[in-house]
Computed example of a mutant assay.
Amino acid sequence: MTLPTSATRSQHSEASLGPLYALLAYSSWGLLPVYWKFFGGTPAVEVLSHRMIWSAVFLVGILLVKRRLGDLRALLQSPRKVLVLLLTASLLTFNWGLYIYGVNSDRVVEASLGYYINPLVTVLLGFVFLKERLYRGQQVAVALAVVGVGYFIWQLGTVPWIALSLAVSFAFYGLLRKVVTVTPLVGLTVETLLITPITLLFVGWLGATGQGRFGESWPMTLLFVGAGVATSMPLLWFNNAAKRLKLATLGFFQYLAPSLSLLLGVFVYGEPFTPVHGVTFGCIWAALLLYSVTALRARGEVKGEG
């Protein structure tokens, strides 16, 4: 039976929105350093605290509009899921805070390296903890990444701890979120709500001691409040993209965010990009290319067997 023309057009229109949502999500993530730079010398912990608080407010508001507060209540009644989400919330808090610190300490290039490495750490964790198959190309890709980071340490005599910490923390976050069955929106709302009481106490203490910058001026106050929107909107766009695109297609968009951050770090904020950086990033880029090609071939083999 042939679908009506109007229904077919509607389906095509919905499908065509997938790349747009993905572009919005990953471009926003890639350009976030610009937003965090506006906070200047504000301590990363204070920025992070407001990011958590206003994200929670914004996300609860979305659930209210979507009439999904029942999903939130149901999730909070599951102690096991809440415990896992407490762990993921801690990892997310660490990751968000470290990224803000990296940006505002003029290490945007290193932070971008972390999100290039992240997919390779993720596939390695899947092999170790979930017994997922690690194809030969993926093994070589992980080895290339190790060589790139090792070369960086050897040449500069310093460990890119921000990059490695961002990659590992977000990979473990993804691993734990994979084993708990919650929708992205409700899960993120619970994660921010679990951390919010601590951040509220901290922000209250800053205000009481006169150290906080909230309320210092209208622009600064709006920046703090806007942190929730700047955090949540890309996630909502990502969820919409994930519904409309194949994972293979979505996977290629993920490299847009660190690429934009890298360009910002080098060409806008004047951070150094030395030959050593070139070798390290070159190894990581080659590893990601190999990883992507291997993943596409693996999917093709699975479909062929099916």
Rank of each mutant, 00 (worst) to 15 (best):
L134C: 03
W161H: 07
L235T: 04
Q211I: 06
G157A: 14
G157I: 04
T209W: 07
T158I: 12
F172E: 01
T183V: 08
A208L: 11
P219G: 04
V229Q: 07
R136Q: 15
P160N: 05
T209Q: 13
T199F: 10
V149G: 03
T181Y: 02
W205V: 09
F224M: 10
Q211K: 15
T192S: 08
L175M: 14
L175E: 06
R177E: 15
L201W: 11
P219Q: 11
L200N: 04
N240Q: 14
I198N: 13
A163S: 15
T181P: 06
L144P: 00
K243H: 10
P184T: 02
L164H: 13
M233H: 03
W154F: 08
V186H: 04
G187A: 07
W205H: 04
L201T: 12
L185T: 00
T231K: 03
A141F: 00
S232I: 14
S217W: 05
A141N: 00
P184W: 04
W205A: 13
F170R: 04
S217I: 08
R213A: 12
K178I: 02
E216Y: 06
G157M: 13
L201Q: 08
P160Y: 01
G174H: 12
T189G: 11
T209P: 10
K243E: 07
G137T: 00
V182F: 05
G148V: 04
I198T: 12
V159M: 13
P160D: 09
M233F: 15
V147M: 12
A163T: 10
P197M: 04
P219R: 11
A227H: 02
A141E: 02
L193I: 03
L193N: 07
V186G: 08
V168G: 02
G137C: 06
N240W: 09
I198R: 00
E132T: 02
L156N: 06
R213C: 02
G210L: 01
L176C: 06
T209S: 15
F224S: 03
W237V: 06
